[in-house]
Amino acid sequence: MIELLAQTGLNALYAAAYMSLVAVGLVLIFGVMGVINFAHGELFMMGAYTVVALYTDFQMPYVLVVGLAVMFVGALGIFMEWSMFRPLRDNPLGGLVASIGFLMILQAAVSMGFGVRMEHVPPVTQEVIEFSDRVRLPVQRLVVILAAVVLLAALWAFLKKTRFGWALRASAQDREAAALQGISIRQTAQIAMFIGAGLAGVAGALTAPLISVNPHMGHSVIIAAFIVIIVGGIGSLEGAVIAAVIYAFVHTFVTTFYDGVVADIVGLSLMLLVLVVKPTGLFGTADRA
């Protein structure tokens, strides 16, 4: 029993790691641009398909491929900002609808390029850390956990310590006041979009060998990410990370002891409960909401 708990805990830790990468990106984009990016799950998918294309098919080194995935998906994010979110700045619902349209385009493009069947990504490393017979942690999962910790720490340092980070936080708090201080809203929006999309891309690229890669994989990711950002308080980066950990543990444990559908229902009910009781989320403040 203890072994099962320990193993489930490790699985939850891994789920928390990639969920927080996705959710933090979503929150960052919402914070700076005020738009909900429905296509965020598909950016995650694009990261995974970069691995399918370059690593599985072209046999390029995995580390290089992950770097390219970040660049590629980040560039997609900048493209979204330029083509949709900037012209629709004063129309949040329009931005949301446009991102749904973009989601359908990405899904169709991938279906046409790779087919709708599940892609198999060969494991990068077969190594497994064995704590005991039944408590095992594949190294690939450890990599995801470590990458999440490093990247989120780097993001935190960037936001709190650099001038760009200050500018980003300033325009998230008050766009016009930030513009009056000489901060380029266009530039900060593009940086936020690159980082937000890039985080989704790296999460997709790192988890690609571990999950089933298919054109519709973004669906469950975006639902989980919504739950996480609502529970954490929309607009709060720290809240998103903490909520990702809470959600991942609840979801993984319920999946292990009941089943996946029940876990989804529990997660959604948790979100509904937070929305009813404290719509600003567990860590959001009233004025940010």
């Binding site: 083509s83 949709m84 329009g94 609808v97 749904i100 349209g101 989601l103 359908m104 169709a108």
Partner: peptide, 20 residues
């Protein structure tokens, strides 16, 4: 057949952009 969702998505984006 395969391109339908893509065209649908494009129509969505174009209509919010140019026909709000």
């Amino acid at each position: 057949e395969q391109m339908r969702p893509m065209i649908y998505g494009l129509v969505m984006i174009l209509s919010v952009l140019f026909l709000p």
